[in-house]
Amino acid sequence: MAITDLPVLAMLRTRMQWSQARQGLIAENVANADMPGFRPRDLAELRLDRATGAPVGGTGLAMTAPGHMAPAGQAGPGTEARRAKGFEIRPSGNGVNLEDEMMKAGDTQADYQLAASLYQHSLTTLRIAIGKS
């Protein structure tokens, strides 16, 4: 087993990948803020198994390659349309709230930076522990 295959490092890598995917969806929501009928999407909250670091939860069918089609009613793995309150939907049918999207973008960026920092410090600690500083 390689050092980078430790569960804690796998969890941090998964968290960083999830944050990256969420930032992509947030950017898509902001880019479509003026498109009539557009509904914002967000990723389902990430849950990890503490023992293995693998994501937990029934995601059902998964797209394992870029050429795969998404399951019916689903735009991508783990994405779900956020239900906008009635007063948040504009007359054009667009439900994107830019303030909410910017708050989510900031939170996601902070989560990514925390996971990246913990990953880097974990690798540094492992190097020190094996005598390679």
Score class of each variant (00 low, 15 high):
Lys85Pro: 15
Arg13Gln: 11
Leu98Glu: 05
Thr79Arg: 04
Glu80Thr: 13
Arg47Ser: 08
Leu9Cys: 00
Pro7Glu: 07
Thr4Phe: 14
Gly131Ser: 01
Gln23Trp: 03
Ala2Val: 15
Ala115Thr: 04
Pro55Arg: 00
Asn94Gly: 06
Leu118Ser: 04
Met102Gly: 02
Gly67Asn: 09
Ser133Lys: 15
Ser133Trp: 10
Thr59Ser: 15
Lys85Ile: 12
Ala65Phe: 04
Asn94His: 01
Gly58Met: 12
Gly53Ala: 06
His121Trp: 11
Phe38Glu: 02
Ala116Glu: 03
Glu80Asn: 12
Ala10Trp: 13
Ala75Gln: 10
Leu118Trp: 06
Pro36Gly: 08
Arg47Leu: 06
Gly73Asp: 06
Leu123Ile: 05
Leu9Ser: 07
Thr59Cys: 13
Gly67Met: 09
Trp18Arg: 01
Arg41Lys: 09
Thr79Ile: 05
Thr52Trp: 03
Pro66Glu: 05
Arg22His: 04
Ser122Ala: 11
Gln113Asp: 12
Glu101Lys: 00
Met69Phe: 14
Leu114Glu: 09
Glu99Pro: 08
Asn94Gln: 02
Ala65Ser: 10
Gln109Glu: 12
Gly58Pro: 00
Val30Glu: 02
Pro36Val: 04
Ala33Lys: 03
Ala105Val: 05
His68Val: 11
Val96Arg: 07
Phe38Asn: 03
Pro91Arg: 13
Ser117Gln: 13
Met63Leu: 10
Arg15Asn: 14
Ala75Cys: 03
Ala54Gly: 05
Thr64Arg: 13
Gly131Val: 05
Gln120Phe: 08
Ala51Lys: 11
Arg13Ile: 11
Asp111Pro: 09
Tyr119Gly: 02
Pro71Phe: 06
Lys104Leu: 06
Gln120Ile: 07
Ala2Asn: 15
Pro66Trp: 01
Val56Cys: 07
Ala105Glu: 06
Ile89Met: 00
Thr79Trp: 08
Thr4Gly: 13
Leu114Phe: 11
Arg13Phe: 08
Asn29Thr: 01
Pro40Met: 01
Pro91Ile: 12
Ala110Phe: 10
Lys104Asn: 07
Val96His: 07
Ala31Tyr: 09
Asp107Ile: 14
Arg90Ile: 05
Ala84Ile: 03
Ala129Cys: 05
Thr4Glu: 11
Ala31Cys: 01
Ser133Asp: 12
Glu45Pro: 03
Gly60Glu: 03
Leu48Ile: 03
Gly131Asn: 02
Asp49His: 00
Arg83Gly: 11
Ala2Asp: 15
Tyr119His: 04
Gly95Ser: 00
Gly131Cys: 03
Gln17Leu: 13
Val30Arg: 04
Ala115His: 04
Ala21Tyr: 05
Gly106Tyr: 09
Pro7Asp: 04
Met35Cys: 15
Ala27Val: 03
Ile128Leu: 14
Ala33Tyr: 01
Met16Val: 07
Gln109Arg: 11
Lys85Asn: 14
Ala31Asn: 03
Ala27Glu: 04
Arg50Gly: 14
Asp34Pro: 00
Gly67Thr: 10
Arg82His: 04
Ala21Ile: 07
Glu101Thr: 00
Arg47Asn: 04
Asp100Trp: 07
Ser133Pro: 13
Gly106Cys: 07
Ala10His: 14
Thr4Met: 14
Glu28His: 09
Ser92Arg: 04
Asn97Phe: 08
Ile130Thr: 10
Pro55Gln: 09
Arg127Gly: 08
Asp100His: 07
Ile89Pro: 06
Gln20His: 13
Glu88Lys: 02
